[in-house]
Amino acid sequence: MTAGWRRTEVRAGREWNVQPVSEAQAVKAYLCPGCGLEIDPGVAHLVTWRADGVLGDAADLASRRHWHTHCWRIGPA
């Protein structure tokens, strides 16, 4: 998987920004909120944040989360 363009998805009536992260861009470990397991460096994944948050863009970006691609697909309701 390579890095792709940010897109917007709607989940449970909320809009989310979804940004793919390539293997080469994945240089840190993150905890996936979907499964609770670590996303290791070098593993392609997704970064998501609210696109319709009431506190504004800065707050939405500050609360972004890194997800395994599979966990996001089956993920947040």
Rank of each mutant, 00 (worst) to 15 (best):
A12D: 15
R11Y: 05
V54R: 14
V43G: 06
G56I: 01
V18E: 00
G53A: 02
A24N: 07
V27P: 05
G42W: 05
A24R: 05
W49G: 01
G13W: 03
K28L: 09
W72M: 05
Y30C: 08
R64N: 12
C35A: 09
A62Q: 10
G4P: 03
P76L: 11
H68T: 04
L55G: 12
L31F: 15
P41W: 02
H45Q: 11
I74M: 14
G42H: 08
E9S: 02
A3W: 02
V10Q: 12
C35T: 04
G56Q: 05
G4S: 06
E15H: 13
R6K: 14
V47F: 04
D40G: 15
A12I: 02
V27I: 14
A12G: 09
W5V: 15
T8F: 13
R65M: 11
L37S: 15
G36Y: 04
A3D: 09
H68Y: 10
S63P: 06
P33H: 04
A26K: 02
Q19H: 13
R7C: 11
C32N: 09
Y30S: 08
P41H: 04
A59I: 04
V21P: 00
N17F: 04
H45N: 04
A51F: 03
H66G: 01
V10Y: 02
V21R: 01
V27M: 10
A29W: 10
D57N: 13
R11M: 04
Y30P: 04
A3C: 12
V43M: 12
T8Q: 14
V18C: 02
W5I: 15
R73V: 09
A12L: 08
E15N: 11
R6N: 11
I74S: 14
Q19S: 14
R65Q: 13
W49I: 01
L61E: 13
Q19C: 13
P20D: 06
G36M: 07
E38V: 14
W67M: 03
P41M: 07
M1N: 15
T8V: 12
L61V: 10
D40R: 15
R11I: 06
W16H: 02
A77F: 12
R14C: 11
A24V: 12
T2N: 14
T48Y: 00
E15K: 11
C71Q: 06
W16A: 01
W72G: 03
T8D: 10
D57M: 06
V43Q: 08
V47H: 06
K28C: 09
V10E: 11
C71Y: 08
R50C: 05
A51R: 00
